[in-house]
Amino acid sequence: MTISEQQRADLTNQVNASELAPAAKERILALLAAPDVSEESLAEIRSVIQADIDADIALVAPGFDAEMANDPEEKAILADGEAQMKAVADDLDDSMKFVAEQSEKIEQAAAQLSAALDKSNLDDVKSRLGMTPGAGQ
């Protein structure tokens, strides 16, 4: 995927103006400068910014991360998200099984039609011989 030059310029300006650590800025700007941005680029940018935020929090609120490890609200949010993702994944698995089933049916139909092609050769010859067509004709 590509982002517009305007978006690229805006994001670059925001990164430069931010209070991110120099190493974080440098990495993000390098990723942003690539002609094509990818899901992987976004994942890394997200991770770099989050790591910078975590470092800030560790400085200003020592022990906060450990506290949050048992935060019931955070646990509920994560559990809810994971359950939703699992439901989507399970549904996708169902869809792929459905595709497999239908592909099998199509193969069966194609085999049946192949048999009809063979039979049609017989019909053609039968007709040429002036013989009476069979049942169903």
Binding site: M1, S18, R46, I53
Partner: peptide, 29 residues
């Protein structure tokens, strides 16, 4: 822990907003 009007809170909020900006821009792309 650190107060809503503290400089640290503002800095962290801005970094979170920057993260969201990237997500919105990439989602649009």
């Amino acid at each position: 822990r650190i107060g809503k009007d503290s400089a640290e809170h503002k800095r962290i909020s801005e970094k979170l907003n920057l993260k969201r900006q990237f997500e919105f821009s990439f989602a649009g792309a």
